[in-house]
Amino acid sequence: MQRDPFYYVKAISKWRFVFMLVAALACAWITVYILKLFIIQFVNRSTTLWGLYIEFIQLFGPAKYNQYIESFGMIFQFLCILGFFILYIYLFYERAKRSYHDKCFQNMLREISYIAKGNFTHKLNAPPIKELEELAMNVDNIVEKLKISIQEERLAEQAKNELITNVSHDLRTPLTSLIGYIGLIQQDQYRDEVELRYYIEVINEKVIRLHQLIQDLFEYTRVQYKGAHLHKIPVNISEIVGQLTAQYRYQMQEAKLECRQFISSGKLMVLADSNKLGRVFENLLWNAIKYGKDGKYIDIHACEDHKMIKVTITNYGSPISKIDLPYIFERFYRVEKSRSEETGGSGLGLAIAKGIIEQHEGFITADSNGEKTIFTVKLLKLEKEESSISSGLKS
Rank of each mutant, 00 (worst) to 15 (best):
R3M: 08
Y8K: 00
W15N: 14
W15S: 15
R16G: 13
V18I: 15
A23K: 00
A26E: 00
I39P: 04
V43K: 03
L49P: 00
W50C: 00
Y53R: 00
Y53P: 00
Q58R: 09
F60P: 00
I69Y: 07
E70I: 06
F92N: 12
Y100D: 06
K103R: 11
M108V: 10
L109R: 07
I112A: 07
S113R: 03
N119V: 01
H122S: 03
K123N: 05
K130C: 05
E131F: 02
D140L: 15
L146C: 12
K147V: 00
A156T: 08
A159S: 06
N161H: 08
E162P: 03
D170H: 14
P174V: 02
Q187R: 15
R191C: 07
I203D: 06
N204D: 12
L213E: 05
L213S: 11
F218E: 13
Q224E: 15
Y225W: 15
S238C: 03
S238R: 12
E239G: 00
Q243I: 02
A246L: 07
Q253E: 13
K256M: 11
E258V: 13
C259M: 14
R260P: 05
Q261T: 12
G266H: 10
G266K: 12
L268S: 01
N275Y: 10
K276Q: 10
L277S: 02
N287T: 13
K290P: 09
I298P: 05
H306L: 09
T314C: 06
S318K: 12
S321F: 04
D324Y: 12
D324R: 06
F332I: 02
Y333S: 04
Y333K: 11
E341T: 07
G344Q: 07
L350P: 05
A351V: 13
A351H: 14
K354S: 07
T365M: 02
T365D: 05
A366H: 03
D367K: 05
N369D: 15
I374F: 10
I374W: 12
L380P: 03
L380C: 10
E383V: 08
E385H: 00
E386G: 04
S388D: 01
I389D: 00
G392D: 04
K394N: 10
